[in-house]
Amino acid sequence: MSRPFEILGLQQIAVGAASKEPLRKLWVDMLGLAPSGHFVSEKENVDEDIVLLGSGPFQVEVDLMQPLDPARSPRVDQPALNHVGLWVDNLALAVEWLTAQGVRFAPGGIRKGASGHDIAFLHPKANEAFPIAGAGVLIELVQAPPEVIAAYRRGV
């Protein structure tokens, strides 16, 4: 099976809790990841701190998330491992090809993510129309910038 795109590597993991404080205590204070940014979205019901692991083009973002309103959906803390993000070299081709193969995407299509990259989410659950999905895992495809694509292809 020939794919018109390549998954390059891990871009991010997102973890959630009712409060970000225990997450910051672990990931920043205990493990030493570097705080990098903050993102809030009423639509996505999320208050998120962005911390970084590693450096350069292979740097991995760890999103520490809590719901803005725990009484409404989506609940970014359920499940606690909210999603995994993967760098892709051509997001538009990946979405088109995967959809044609029967992969289910979450509503919203391709859009800007919290870090400014174009993103699309594979739905965690399959359905009759789209029998292939994340098998319980929400997977974010993230358009890699040119320098990340080049670094992964060089293996540096």
Rank of each mutant, 00 (worst) to 15 (best):
Ala100Cys: 00
Gln101Leu: 05
Gln101Glu: 04
Gln101Tyr: 01
Arg104Thr: 04
Phe105Thr: 04
Phe105Val: 07
Gly108Tyr: 09
Gly108Asn: 07
Gly109Lys: 02
Gly109Met: 01
Gly109Val: 08
Ile110Trp: 03
Ile110Cys: 05
Arg111Asp: 00
Lys112His: 08
Ala114Ile: 04
Ser115Ala: 14
Ser115Asp: 15
Ser115Lys: 14
Gly116Cys: 06
Gly116Phe: 05
Gly116Thr: 09
Gly116Ser: 09
His117Pro: 13
His117Asp: 11
Asp118Gly: 10
Asp118Pro: 13
Ile119Thr: 03
Ala120Ser: 11
Ala120Tyr: 00
Ala120Asp: 02
Phe121Lys: 05
Phe121Ala: 03
His123Gln: 12
His123Arg: 12
Pro124Thr: 07
Lys125Cys: 11
Lys125Asn: 08
Ala126Thr: 02
Ala126Asp: 08
Asn127Asp: 12
Asn127Arg: 05
Ala129Gly: 11
Pro131Asp: 07
Ala133Lys: 09
Gly134Asn: 14
Ala135Arg: 15
Ala135Pro: 14
Ala135Asn: 15
Ala135Val: 15
Gly136Glu: 13
Val137Cys: 14
Val137Trp: 12
Ile139Asn: 09
Glu140Asn: 13
Leu141Arg: 09
Leu141Pro: 07
Leu141Gly: 10
Val142Asp: 06
Gln143Met: 07
Ala144Ser: 11
Ala144Gly: 04
Pro146Lys: 00
Pro146Trp: 03
Pro146Asp: 00
